[in-house]
């Protein structure tokens, strides 16, 4: 079996400048902080980050933003990280953040489509709003839908609760969020997990993400907490 266990630094080493990186989690619950920390340490620039939100300063992708590593952010909500608004509105072109706001359900489904071999999907969400600008509207049985296209990435940073050495991963509680879809939609998938067990150590009935999607496994992810 391929040895997928790596240190955080080894796992993020291939993430170069300009990479497109999906990051799991919702308000940083379900975000692999050890992988984010390693990426901050590595200092890759001009990243395109695809994540539900911008975390908060000092948490989740908020750390990458504070460190000036994000050029483009795809997210559904950025209101709890005031740095986003400041960076969107700055006059300094080097600091300017290109923030693409996407309805949360559309974001999740675009990633799912990307990982599931679909050329896109039709959603009623956003019809008649600025989200529809530039998109094809298709009428089916009297109702308008927007054609939304799939999203893929070079890398996905996933947070697991328990992962076996093949990469089979389970997610506790509300840490699941975007992780399972992102694990299918990126070329290289890194799981930061709380506990690594031998193959056979996770019940196949409970596995959500198959090890076939996982390229690297990093242990030592801490339980998520609000205070920090």
């Amino acid at each position: 079996m391929i040895d997928k266990i790596k240190s955080a630094a080894e796992a993020v080493a291939p993430i170069g400048d300009g990479s497109v990186v999906m990051v799991g989690g919702f308000m940083a619950c379900g975000t692999p902080e050890i992988l984010i920390d390693a990426l901050v340490e590595k200092g890759s620039k001009d990243l395109t980050i695809i994540c539900n939100d911008a975390g908060v300063p000092g948490r989740g992708v908020g750390k990458l933003l504070s460190n000036g590593q994000i050029k483009t952010l795809y997210a559904s909500h950025v209101g709890l990280n005031p740095e986003v608004a400041a960076r969107m509105n700055t006059d300094n072109p080097d600091d300017k953040l290109d923030c693409k706001l996407i309805p949360q359900g559309t974001l999740a489904e675009r990633i799912r489509a990307g990982g599931n071999g679909l050329g896109g999907f039709l959603t009623p969400t956003g019809v008649g709003t600025i989200v529809a600008e530039g998109k094809q509207v298709i009428r089916i049985e009297g109702r308008d839908y927007l054609l939304e296209l799939p999203l893929n990435a070079d890398f996905a940073l996933i947070r697991g609760t328990k992962t076996d050495t093949f990469g089979n991963t389970i997610y506790n509680g509300t840490t699941r969020t975007f992780n399972p879809m992102m694990a299918t939609a990126a070329d290289y998938v890194i799981v930061g997990t709380c506990e690594i067990v031998d193959v056979g150590g996770v019940d196949p009935n409970e596995v959500v993400t198959s090890g076939i999607f996982v390229d690297a496994i990093v242990g030592g992810e801490k339980p998520w907490t609000l205070s920090k």
Binding site: D53, A75, S76, H77, V78, G79, L80, V84, A85, M88, C99, L101, P103, Q104, G105, T106, P124, T125, G126, V127, T129, V131
Partner: peptide, 12 residues
């Protein structure tokens, strides 16, 4: 500019 989060999907 907080973003729509899940609101657009919910109301539709």
């Amino acid at each position: 500019v907080p973003g729509m989060g899940g609101a657009m999907d919910l109301v539709v």
